[in-house]
Write a protein that binds this DNA or RNA. Structure first.
Lengths: 182, 182
DNA sequence: TCCTGCTATGCAACTTGTTGCATAGCAACT
DNA sequence: AGTTGCTATGCAACAAGTTGCATAGCAGGA
């Protein structure tokens, strides 16, 4: 499984608590790996038991204490071993595409509902695209002056940007097709 | 869950056995929904018990008998209800993106391995793109003369094609970035 | 002749991922 | 004073997905 590895990479980039990791997964990392806070907490405990990461209790004022994790050497070695092993092609679960093909077997009112649904997704993807673009301007203002870590983060972000662009264009194609069908 | 719905759509387009469904999921449907034969057989039995689909035993020569399923009316109604409910944005599990960001924390030999891995994925995506394009030429030679079902299948296929094009271009970007990093 | 591979289905065990709920203090708004 | 919302973590139960193995007949090549 690779949630462990995604967490390791995130902790190597920046130590953090389970809660902080969960919000990172909701934002940037969520683009290529989704996880709920439950999953993250469970895997964090296992990783700590395996010695892959180390935890430090941090007391806070006005809010509960937190456990800040950072990657330990065995974890870094495990990541390195995983990097050398081939991985499978990405898996996708694209409900909307299933719906689009399914719309052929529904009546016209179902098709009208689908238009609204596609428009909703289009708005969400457009918003995400703009968030990525804003993040790019903020974090990578000078693409010529990046170290290795930043350059790799940037190329992954560019992947997200291109994915969102392509998706918005495709959803426009879907809307045009649905429009032609009446 | 939506595997049920993906199966319903596939059976509405064309009745088939569990084995046939599994190979469809390995080919066209696998683009937006992956499933192993185990999952498919298990869900088919549940769907049959729920009356969503009907099975017919078909004897064959030279090979085992098969159970050919087709969508029943309650299944079509369940699909229709699902089409009217909003769905979540697609979820992605993109190991390769995790690896790319993880490569910042590995030594140069790990980075060399990553180049090979990216090239492997690039070849796979290129092959898939060409398969999709060949399928498009075969199944949709005249895009102006399609019924609703075909038009919807075609627009989903175009989504797959654009996704593969975008991915190949992005992997080239990744390779160029890795090359620049030495 | 043996081995591989394809069609065709399935059990059992295991790992992952999801959902609902619970706690708890504080801030900000109503 | 009450409600909502954020930080912060977690249990328990359930649903979904994966992996390894098994069966079985036939085709085709080494």
């Amino acid at each position: 499984m690779a949630l462990e590895h995604a967490i390791l990479v995130s902790l190597l980039e920046q130590p953090g608590s389970g809660y902080e990791l969960a919000s990172r997964f909701d934002r940037s990392i969520g683009r290529f790996w989704t996880a709920t806070h439950q999953q993250i907490y469970r895997v964090l405990r296992r990783m700590e038991a395996d010695g892959w990461i180390a935890a430090e209790e941090v007391a806070q004022e006005g809010r509960p204490d937190k456990r800040v994790y950072s990657a330990a050497e065995p974890g870094r070695r495990a990541l390195s071993a995983w990097l050398r092993a081939p991985v499978e092609p990405e898996t996708v679960r694209h409900d909307l595409a299933v719906k689009i093909r399914g719309a052929a077997f529904d009546d016209p009112s179902g098709r009208a509902g689908l238009v609204a649904e596609v428009e909703r997704h289009r708005a969400a993807h457009t918003a995400l695209l703009h968030r990525y673009l804003a993040g790019e301007r903020r974090d990578f203002p000078d693409p010529a002056a990046l170290d290795a870590q930043q350059a790799l983060q940037h190329v992954v972000l560019r992947g997200g940007i291109e994915y969102e662009r392509m998706t918005v264009a495709w959803l426009d194609d879907v809307l045009a097709t649905l429009h032609r069908l009446g």
